[in-house]
Every structure is written in C-alpha cells, then in structure tokens.
Design a binder for these strands. Structure first.
Lengths: 233, 233
DNA sequence: GTTTATCTTTACACAACATTTACGTTGCTT
DNA sequence: AAGCAACGTAAATGTTGTGTAAAGATAAAC
C-alpha cells in the first residue's frame, strides 16, 4: 500500500504539529500551509492525495479557497471548522468539499473520514463497469460454484486457473503483469525464471480452445497478459 | 446529466415517502427497502448510484448490512441514524460507509452530501480516463493496454517502440536527443555507431505512415527527434 | 501408508524482438 | 562540387521471452 501525502491548510500551527505527528503514526505524510494563498498553490500538486482545509483563516478563508478551486477539484477536500452550524456545512459541500468535520474533533474520526474518502477513490479507480457482471467476451464465471463456461460449454478449471482467469477478466482489455498475478493469486513475489504463470495460462488456453473461435488471452511480450474485451476499440 | 437511482434501506416508511418526493424534485429516483435483508440483496444492483442506509432497523441493522457488504462495496453508502454519537459514526466509516448523517437532518444537507459523493466519483472516473490515455496530434496512447492508435486506426507497436513514442510524446514539439532515449528506454549509454534508435524510429514511422497524412516524427540532424505537436507554429 | 489432483520446475524449440551490418541517401561544410 | 558526417532502412544476425511437454514436488483425499 502506498503512502499518502496530505495537505493541511490551517493557520493554527499547533494543530498542524499535532496532526502531523498523529497522521505519521498512521502512515500519512502531512504537509502544512498556514494561509489560504500558499495553500491554494499547493492544492494543484498531483502528489497530494487529500486536502484538509480549515474555514477560519486570516486573509483568504476556507470558502474562498474552495471557490477558487472551482468546485470540482481533482484532489478531494475535507473541511475543518470551529463553526458547526448547518448552513456552513451545506455551503462547504455545495462549493465542492467532499466532507466536513467540525472542530474540535477526535483524531480517530478525522482518520476514519480521510480513509473513507481515499477508500472510495481507490474502489472507483479499480472498478470497471464489467467487473461484477461475470460474463466477458463469451466467457462466463460463476463465483459461487467456481464454474466457468465458454460459449455455454462448461469448462473445468483448477482453483489457481480460476483465480487467474477471474483476475484477468476483472479488467478486460487491460494488461495485467505477471508480477501482479503472482502476488494476487499465488501470493508470492515473481522470481526470475518462474514459469508457473505461463503454465497456468497455457492450461487455461488449452481448456478454452475447443469452444472458442479465437484466443481470448493475449500475450503482451515482457508486459503481461490481456483478457480481450470483445469488440476491439 | 444522467438521472441517478438511489436505494434507501430504512424501516421508516413515512420517511421513505417524504424523501422519495423530495429527491424526485431534485432529479433522483428513490427505491426503498424496509429491512436489512432485502436491502442487502438490492445493494448489488449495478444500476444504483448510492445507498442510504439507516442504522436502526429491526432484524439486520445498518452495521450488520455494512459488514455483510464487506467494507469495500462498489456502490457508495451514506449512513443515516438517530444516534449521533461519535463512536457510531466512526464505526460506520471504518466499516465501509462513505459518509454519515445524523437524523433528523435537513433535506438540503442530505442532498448536499449525496451530491458531494457522486461528484467525487464522477471526477475520479473522468480523470482516470485522461490519465491512462494521452493524445497528441492524432496519435493516441493507452497505457493500460499499451495500444497506440493513429487517427483511430489501431497500430501494433513492440514494447521498445511504445516506450520511445511515449517518451517523445511526453514532450511534444521538443527535441529529444538519442542519448536521452537510449538511457531512458534502452537503459544504456549511447555508443558510437549504435543505430538501434534509428531503427526503432524507422519502424515506428513505417507503422504510422499508412494512417498519417504527414510524418509526425521529425529528425533534427545531429540533435535528436521531435514528435510534432500539431497545428501550432 | 497410498493414491490422486494440482502446482511448480526443467528443458527445449520457437517466434518475437532488438541489434548490427551494409549500403544508399541527405544535407552540411568548405 | 567534393567530401563527409548523420540518417534511412533492408536484411542478416543475436538475444530473450514465451509455449508447452514432461518430469518432479507438494498437498489433499482416501
């Protein structure tokens, strides 16, 4: 799991220090800006995963920063504020904030909210339209029974073979590296001269072949395998 | 803008009616389930954009539904509850909820929170596409599939050819020296009389040519190559 | 224990790819 | 215009990753 960088925009330097320590123990790196203007600049840094934005600041306040970011900023924003009243909360959300946490807050709640936002982004990024529908390009998976059928012909796959084809089918049309398959399915690092994956893919191909007009598993030399998504595009 | 379908899981039928009317005026379609079990089934319906989940329910309660969904459900979840205490809120978020709204709430706040979640998903999905594909001057790269298309015609490039064109396209209109290409792509110093790069560029040109009105790769004698940026200058 | 199914390694052939060679062409310098 | 260095590219050569049969290792079932 990669380490996330967070940006705190808040004039309260004491809080910044506290949060920096706490979030570090949770595996985050906290960067601080103490006024709206400098925060606004940093907000476009793509390496930042999430912005913690305080409302009450001298100069440019939190709402003004939000407005300046234009309502659909690439990086998610969690608002922090002393004022807990509804109108502010709603305004913040309508201006483009992703969430809103009234001060004072428990560290654990802040953490839970940060994680909720980052988790959602992760899920969205790793999910394709087709991932829960189990049929792609004539091959149908039944997760419950672990059965696979190819153009309505039932195929017998072993557990590993099933997991590999399921993984490839979760991102049809995308290259999946052998490293990824090894780590996700075989639960070990891919070492040099390890030909296991190749063998499994070869076996899957052999079992699909009698019922398939074309090879659905494409090899991308020195990159990985693709489960072809049907109509080429 | 497409109409979103929302799923409300709450035993309070009066609230369901109220919300259904209100959300309809805001362009949402609300579907209701009045117990955890039937809600759990509906939760896997891909046509649903967001789930509103009440905590206090007879039978399976909200937390149990969350647990059953496994913590990273595809559809985002907004928890509703009468209990406003912190521990519950945090627990819900940690169990996989995206947000938490204590009852009673203003309709406008619910709307703002729903929109905040849907907006974030929309932003992530749109930036995802632009981050995996890169188009310059009629040539499009798709990093996930390592496919290259030239004016919508698919081109087959080898790994090295792909890396070279990707590198040239990362700085369109700029001269990239052979030394740089050699070190970045081939991972070795360019030695005298080494014609590899020339060959690769030649092969890329040959593959692009049938679909390209003009040569997009320009040679700058004794300096390097440029991927032309298009109309400008 | 044995048998059976499954996974991994070994071995070799082969195809895809990268690189070098060789020779023709271009464009700069004097 | 001659000379030369850089480039284009066809063809030959070198290298590497992949396909797969078969053997070996491991785990599960009996």
């Amino acid at each position: 799991m990669k380490k996330h960088k967070l940006l705190l925009i808040d004039d309260d330097k004491e809080l910044a220090e506290l949060l920096s320590d706490y979030l570090a123990t949770e595996g985050f790196e906290l960067i601080s800006c103490h006024d709206g203007v400098s925060g606004l600049e940093k907000a476009f840094d793509d390496s930042i995963s999430l912005i913690l934005l305080d409302v009450m600041m001298p100069g440019l306040n939190g709402f003004e920063v939000l407005k300046a970011l234009g309502g659909n900023h690439k990086t998610p924003i969690l608002m922090l504020t002393a004022k807990g009243d509804n109108a502010d909360r709603i305004l913040g959300l309508e201006l483009g904030a992703d969430d809103y946490l009234p001060k004072p807050f428990q560290h654990r709640e802040l953490l839970a909210r940060i994680n909720a936002i980052l988790r959602r982004i992760d899920i969205v990024q790793n999910t394709k339209e087709t991932s829960t529908s189990h049929e792609v390009n004539g091959v149908k998976l039944n997760h419950a029974t672990r059965q696979v059928s190819c153009h309505d012909n039932l195929i017998e796959l072993t557990g590993t073979e099933y997991q590999i084809i399921a993984h490839l089918m979760s991102k049809p049309g995308e290259i999946i590296s052998k490293e990824e398959i090894s780590e996700r399915v075989l639960k070990r690092k891919l070492s040099a001269f390890d030909r296991s994956i190749d063998m499994h893919v070869s076996n899957i191909r052999r079992k699909l072949l009698p019922f398939s007009p074309s090879d659905k598993l494409k090899t991308i030399r020195s990159a990985g395998y693709i489960f072809l998504a049907g109509e080429t595009q």
